[in-house]
Every structure is written in structure tokens, then in C-alpha cells.
Design a protein around this nucleic acid. Structure first.
Lengths: 146, 146
DNA sequence: TTCAGTTAGTAAACATGTTTAGTAATCTAC
DNA sequence: GTAGATTACTAAACATGTTTACTAACTGAA
């Protein structure tokens, strides 16, 4: 048995398949974000804050898949740009509560339409059933214990 | 119709679902790579070179999902570390041909077993059918024109 | 032949990813 | 109550991601 046969070709390798699929989806979204001078990470943060209200940084970290050191830096600029506010939690002074501002919400709402249109384009080509199936499988994979 | 209902919650948002799933799969692989002082990107490059033989940088870029500027830097250190060799193409002097060295191949082969074991763990938990189905759907998504 | 357009790669600047280390606050076992 | 562990976050260093700009080499049409 050769080493080659022990390995999946990269096209069937799970990590790179996930990466490539993501690149396909993100390409048009990145175009949209570039127009509004927002990075992909800031977009994810705004979406999490829009959905969850005022939350602490660790929560954003988990939900938006950003490590805390990255988040610290990104939130610093987002606060300076008036997209979010931060305040120390009164109960537990280690925690910082983060909230989206009206300005931040406005950026989000002005672009959700475009975001939705991109999703719809993908849905039209793959079919709603397959896309749902894919999302189910991704959730399941995410829950695997490794 | 509120803005909220126009948006998928982030848990059903395709880009972040792909990202989270990938984080799950990559976590143990990153552990492995840290032990051998190799980054995830270098690992992907070695795998592509192992699979495809001597190729030019643009090909690596496409296959390993790395932009050319990143690749330039990474290959520079990999060449210095003796994991790859580079030479100018004789037919088209713009092109650089990259090949894996024996040392590079050795790193790869020494760790393919661990890599395979991680994949097997996931396969055992999700089932082979679902995993195949997921890979099919990912390939299909990757082929969508956006 | 020539020159406008394209392609392959590099350089530089800045943002983010990732690891290690550190601080302050909180929790827990005793 | 207190010392040791844990938690939330920040700092710093270095690697990579991303964009823009650049050079060199190639292509193709007039």
C-alpha cells in the first residue's frame, strides 16, 4: 500500500474542500464589502451583534470564529469608527459588553439586500434542497468531537 | 417584513457555517502541525506538490487556495528550509517551477498517518455516507458561478 | 515588426491569524 | 477568609491575508 493511496487527493480532502467552497461563496461578498470599506471579519461581528444584542467579547469570538487577540484589535477600530460601543460589565469586571450602534446597524441594513441576493443566486443554482442538506451536514460536522 | 427575517441567522449562514465546520476539522490537524513546526499553509503546499509533481506557482496558488503574494513569501522560507526547490521555466521565463524535495516529502509522509487518523475519527462519528455526501455538495458549491 | 494587452511573479503596506505571555478579576476548595 | 486555579481580556511578535502597484516576459493583431 503506497503512501499515495493512504491519502485523499486534495480535491477530496475535507479541510481544503471546505476552504475552496468558502472562497466561492465569499468572493462576491468580499466585492460588496470592499465597496463599503468593511472587512469580512467586521461584517461577521456586526451580524453577530445585530442578532444577539449586547454581548461580551468571548461570545463574539465564538460566534464569529475570531480569536480574542484579533477581536481586541478589530473592536478597537470599530469603536473608533463608531460602529460599536464597549463598556465594562458591572457584575464581572473582567468582562466587556459590546453593542452595535445605530451607525453600525445602518451599514448592516444597507447591505443585507445584496448579501441576500448572493445567497439567492447560489440557491438558484444548487437548489434549495441541496443547500439545506449542506447546511445540515455542516452543522453536524461542526458538532463532531475531535 | 423585518430586516431580521430577511437574514439567515448566522448559524444558518453559509460562509460562517463553512468556517466553523473547517475550524472543527482543522483543530486537531493544527495540533499535529504545531508539533512539527509547520503551518497549515505549508502543509497544503507540500500536499499539492506531492500530488502534482513539479508545478508553477500559479497552480499551487489555485490548488492550495493561497494568493500569489502570500505564496511568494511562504515559498521563500520553504526553499530556505530545504522543503522545496524552485527554478525558472526555460520555455516561459515568467514562470517559476516548484518541486518538493526529499526532505519535504519526508515531513509529509511522516505525518500522513496522523492526518488519516483524524479523518477516520470524523468518518466514524458522521458516517462514511454523510461525509461523502458532504464532499459532493462542497464540490458542487465550489463549482457554482457567482 | 511593433506595440497594446495580458500573464507570472514580486514588493510594500496594512489588516488579520496565531501563539505566548501577561494582568486583573473571579471562583473554588480548604 | 485565603491561596491556587480559572477566566476575560490585552500586548507583543511573527506569519499570513489582501490590496495595490510594479517589473519582466509573453501574446496577438495590425
Amino acid at each position: 500500500m503506497t503512501q499515495e493511496s493512504q491519502t485523499k487527493s486534495t480535491s477530496r480532502a475535507l479541510p481544503i474542500a471546505l476552504l475552496r467552497a468558502r472562497e466561492t461563496v465569499m468572493a462576491p461578498i468580499r466585492d460588496m464589502l470592499q465597496d463599503i470599506h468593511l472587512t469580512e471579519q467586521k461584517w461577521r461581528i456586526l451580524r453577530v451583534l445585530h442578532e444577539m444584542g449586547e454581548v461580551e467579547q468571548s461570545t463574539i469570538s465564538k460566534e464569529a470564529c475570531l480569536l480574542l487577540p484579533s477581536l481586541t484589535r478589530i473592536l478597537r477600530t470599530m469603536e473608533a469608527d463608531g460602529q460599536i460601543t464597549r463598556r465594562q460589565d458591572t457584575d464581572d469586571k473582567r468582562r466587556t459588553k459590546v453593542k452595535i450602534t445605530d451607525a453600525g446597524r445602518q451599514i448592516l441594513e444597507a447591505n443585507l439586500g445584496t448579501s441576500l441576493a448572493i445567497y439567492t443566486t447560489i440557491e438558484e443554482q444548487m437548489g434549495q434542497d441541496k443547500l439545506d442538506q449542506l447546511l445540515d451536514l455542516l452543522e453536524e460536522l461542526q458538532a463532531v468531537k475531535v
